[in-house]
Amino acid sequence: MKNLKIGKLSLNDFGGEGKNLIFVHAFPMSSKMWEPQVNYFKDKFRVITYDVRGLGESKVEEYQYTMETYAEDLISVIKELKLEKVNAVGLSMGGYIILRAIVKQPELFASITLADTRAERDTDAGIISRSAAIDMIKSGKRNEFLEQFTKNLVAPANYENPEFRRNLDKIISENSDESICAAMIALATRTSTLEHLPEFNKPALVIAGEYDVLTPPPMAEVMKSVLPDSRLEIIPNSGHLSNMEEPEKFNEVLLKFLNEIN
């Protein structure tokens, strides 16, 4: 594995033979959340992960950026590595980033996998609750916020599982208060991509955790219904973090999709 820097972004290129497979992580995580996928796919594909601006090892001094910046960052990673025909996999925030990148530059992508995400922008109530979360973190209540957030993030059985929680909490703990708040703001500045999806005619896999309460299966069905070449997989027993909660099932449906289209 090679660690690279592209501007502020920290990338991991696991080499590997075969097609390009890039993973874009969720909020408030880092590329480390893809460990079960990296291990499974690195012998079959050229696997690449990176940390979204501000999070993980992609440290910044200045926190003024939006969803558009995030999408530009993904495009710059693809262009800097001179990747052709990219298979992109994003979960939640990672899905928003991919959705915006395919609207901007569809020709860069061979396929997309959208896990536990949605095509709609934040509602007004959604933005106001993100603002309230930022206030909580600023006033020193980071742990309370994360506790509430984690409860909604994963299925109850995983929330109660100490080993799963230790791994999850460790990944989140490496992100600063500032980077978590700035990411919430970037999420709030995203636009709707729904009306652009009928134009994207590459293969798309839509995944949703059965018990995902943040972006429940009906939101996945909406994307499936407008993407011309798409299929939907529901991951049983999983909440929002389907790749970490049910890695075997997640890997199986992703591999099946990638084999079918290639």
Binding site: E62, A132, I134, D135, E178, C181, I185, A188
Partner: peptide
């Protein structure tokens, strides 16, 4: 806080 805020912060 590094100029990280929303419209709600301004209203508050």
């Amino acid at each position: 806080f590094k100029n990280i805020y929303t419209m709600e912060t301004f209203a508050n």
